[in-house]
């Protein structure tokens, strides 16, 4: 019992460190990536390749005063950024990076991550509402309706995978996909499912991750040309910093989930030397795709976004769920 408790505390600390370092250096990667796409140098002054930029930015943000706008709800205003970061960190606890590297494997791991992901949107609502700013309010309403809309197809797709694996345990889901990439849920030719529509499921899941993390082209919550800075318009200092970090932590979690559910976790594409490096490679390739999409596409409108979810993604994911169920019954 004591050992388990110690494990959990250590895991949480490692998770915080992992999330923070990832968030900080993803900002750097994003800025460098954007600069590469836009044919300019990007941050390159502080340290080699500008690698000191994130810690310096962090110091700058921490040294700033947190201004609370007049008439704002102080408690919620301060709680909101913390609430944004908290579920992101908690989710890391149950993510298996390899056979051995997992803080606390749970047999309801999938459920837990989605529960925490749903919690994340409340922080946006709190932030927007407590700021007493119309732009922030509109943005948070957008963000919440967006989260609600995209959680449904995301969950349905996940259920498809869970059905194939027969378990909600993330380890178990990865074990199911062991072997070459033809066993992975994205190309399920040799695996348990023979559903040829699984690539579609992967796309749906990936799109939903983009939307859930409020990333372009679905970044309506912080549509800066319309709503100034969205729900964090009034935030400065580390309040803004936490929102920023939470966004990147969420990207990491979303990419982790995509890797685990569809890309065979730490499995090698050719069935050789499975290990954490494969996981990391897949994870950062996905994140690079996130960055690439962000700097390429313009933004949708709120109705374009909701229509995509309710009229296209949900019917498609439901159809795929039924098809998978039928195929599982047949084979």
């Amino acid at each position: 019992m004591r050992l388990t408790l110690f494990n959990v505390v250590a895991a949480v600390i490692i998770a915080i460190a992992f999330a923070a370092v990832n968030a900080a250096y993803l900002v750097w990667a994003e800025r460098r990536g954007a600069a590469r796409i836009q044919r300019r140098p990007g941050p390159n002054i502080n340290g080699p390749f500008g690698l000191l930029q994130p810690p310096l930015d962090g110091i700058k943000l921490m040294a700033k005063q947190l201004t609370i706008p007049g008439g704002a709800d102080k408690v919620l205003f301060i709680a909101a950024p913390v609430l944004a970061m908290f579920p992101a960190i908690m989710s890391f606890v149950t993510i298996p990076f390899s056979e051995n590297i997992v803080a606390k494997n749970m047999n309801v791991g999938v459920l837990m991550i989605f529960a925490f992901a749903a919690l994340g949107s409340t922080s946006l609502l709190f932030a927007g509402w407590s700021s007493r700013n119309k732009y922030a309010m509109m943005a948070s309403i957008r963000a919440v309706s967006q989260t609600v809309a995209y959680e449904i197809p995301m969950l349905i797709t996940t259920i498809t995978v869970v059905m194939i694996a027969g378990s909600m345990d993330l380890m178990e889901i990865v074990h199911q996909q062991s072997g070459s990439f033809l066993h992975w849920n994205i190309f399920p030719l040799l695996g348990k499912s023979h559903n040829i529509l699984m690539p579609l499921s992967f796309l749906i899941f990936f799109t939903c991750t983009l939307a859930e993390t409020n990333r372009s082209p679905f970044d309506l919550g912080e549509a800066e040309s319309e709503l100034v800075a969205g729900f964090h318009t009034e935030y400065g200092s580390m309040g803004f910093g936490l929102f920023f970090m939470a966004e990147y932590a969420n990207i990491v979690i979303g990419s982790c989930m995509t890797t685990i559910l569809f890309l065979g976790g730490w499995g090698c594409p050719f069935g050789l030397f499975p290990g954490v490096w494969w996981f990391i490679l897949k994870l950062y390739l996905l994140i690079a795709t996130f960055i690439w999409i962000r700097w390429t596409f313009p933004r949708t409108t709120i109705y374009g976004l909701l229509n995509l979810s309710w009229k296209i993604l949900i019917p498609l994911s439901l159809f795929n769920l039924l098809l998978t169920a039928g195929l599982l019954k047949v084979f």
């Binding site: 954007a34 796409i37 390429t296 596409f297 313009p298 933004r299």
Partner: peptide
């Protein structure tokens, strides 16, 4: 204009 629509890179080009 493209930046108004949320696409950043075209401005730089």
């Amino acid at each position: 204009f493209v930046m108004d629509l949320g696409g950043f890179s075209p401005l730089m080009y």
